[in-house]
Simulated scan of single mutants.
Amino acid sequence: MSVDGSLERRKQPPPAPSTGNGNGVVPPNLGHYSANRLRLNPNKDHKPDSYEDLQLEFSPFLFSSLEQYLPPSMLRVSRDIKLQYMKHILLRYSPEGERLRVQRHREYRQKIIANYKPLHKELFTMHAENFFVPSFLKAIKDDKEGGFRSIMFQPSPGVYTFEMLQPNFCEMLLSEVESFERWVHHTKYRIMRPNTMNKYGAVLDDFGLETMLNKLMLDFIRPISEVFFPEVGGATLDSHHGFVVEYGTDRDVELGFHVDDSEVTLNVCLGKQFSGGELFFRGVRCDKHVNTETQSEEMLDYSHVPGRAVLHRGRHRHGARATTSGRRVNLLMWCRSAVFRELRKYQKDCSSWCGECQREKKERQRQAVAATKMELLKRDGKPTA
C-alpha cells in the first residue's frame, strides 16, 4: 500500500547550526545561550511569563508553554532574552516565506474577529460543565491514568475512542459555524479552508475560538496524551490547529489516505444525520516508512457517533470513506509540540512509535540471536542445519 498524492508531508528545513538562526547570524543578546538545548521534561515549578501583550509571529500561548522547557540557566534571564531564544528555535522550522504567510494569516484573523459578531458567545470561553459529558469531566478532574483508561475504548493499538461532547454543545458549535459561513458569504470575505485536502469547513481559530480551543488542548487533551502518547510529545503539546470539516453529497465526499501535521489528533463527530463516512486506520509510520505495507493487525474501520471522540497520533495513517447520504460535520484539533519537533532532529530511532521501525528492530534482534546461536553450535561441533 502506498500513501497517495494527497498526503500532506511536513516540510522542514535542515537544522540550523546551534549558534545561528539559519541565515548564519547569531541572534542578538543570546550569547552563549544559543548553544543550549531544551529540557526533556518541563519545570512544573516555574511560572512562565505572559507574551499576550506582544505582536508575535507565533501564538503567545506557544511561548508561555515552551518556556517551561528552557534550560535552567535561562529561567532567570529577562523575558526579552527568553523570547529571542525561543523564536530562534521556532524559526528553524519556519522559513521566511512561511513566516510571511503566518503574518498575513494573523492579519486576516484579526480583521474577521474585529467584524464578526458571534451567535453563541458562551462558546468562546471554556464552560466545561456545559461542554463535556460527566464521565469525561470526572476522569479529567481525577487526573489519574486509571480514570483515563476507564473511559477509553481502544479498538486498535494507538486509536482511542471515548464519550466527550454534550449534544447541546455540538448543536451550538454547528450553528455557530453555519452563522460564520453565512456572514462570510454576505460580506464576501474569503474563507480559508482547514487544509489543502478539504474544500469545505472552517478554521475555528480564525473567528475567535483560539483561546477556548487552546484551553481544551492544555487542560483536557494534554493530560490524556501524556498518558497515551508520551513518545510523540504528548506531555508537551503547546499549540494547535482547530477546525471543522464538512462531508456530504454536496460537500467533500471522502478524504484520501494521509497523515496529519500534528503529534496528536482529536477528532469528534458533531452530527448531523448521515450514513457512510467511516474512518479507516492503517498503522503509525515515521517519514522514512510512510509508504510501507500495512500489517493485518493495523487495519481498523471506525464509524462516527455524534459526541464521541477519536484520539490518535498524527502520524497514524488514515482516511475517510465516502459519506453516502446526509451531512457529517467533525471537529478536529491538530495538537503540536515544539519540544518534540526540536528533539526529533537528534532522534535516530523511531521504534518507540513507528510500527515499521519496531518490526525492523525486532528482525535485527532475531537475526542477532540466530547468529549467536549458530556460533555457539559451531563451537560445540554440533550440526547447524
Rank of each mutant, 00 (worst) to 15 (best):
S225I: 06
V227R: 02
V227E: 06
F229G: 03
F229Q: 05
F229T: 04
P230T: 05
E231V: 05
V232N: 08
G233V: 03
G234W: 06
T236A: 12
L237Q: 13
D238T: 10
D238M: 10
S239R: 13
S239A: 13
F243T: 08
V244G: 11
V245S: 14
V245D: 12
E246C: 10
Y247A: 10
Y247W: 11
G248K: 11
T249S: 12
T249K: 15
V253N: 06
V253F: 03
L255M: 05
L255F: 02
G256E: 06
G256R: 02
H258W: 03
D261T: 03
S262C: 07
E263K: 05
V264Q: 06
T265D: 09
L266A: 10
V268C: 15
V268F: 13
C269D: 13
L270Y: 14
L270P: 15
G271C: 13
Q273R: 14
S275Y: 00
G276T: 14
G276R: 15
E278C: 09
E278P: 11
E278G: 07
L279R: 00
F281I: 04
V284P: 13
R285T: 08
C286M: 13
C286Y: 07
K288I: 11
H289R: 15
H289A: 10
H289V: 11
N291K: 05
N291S: 08
T292L: 13
T292W: 10
Q295K: 05
M299A: 03
Y302P: 00
H304N: 04
P306K: 00
P306Q: 01
G307Q: 03
A309T: 01
R313Y: 02
R315W: 03
A320N: 12
A320V: 12
R321C: 07
A322H: 05
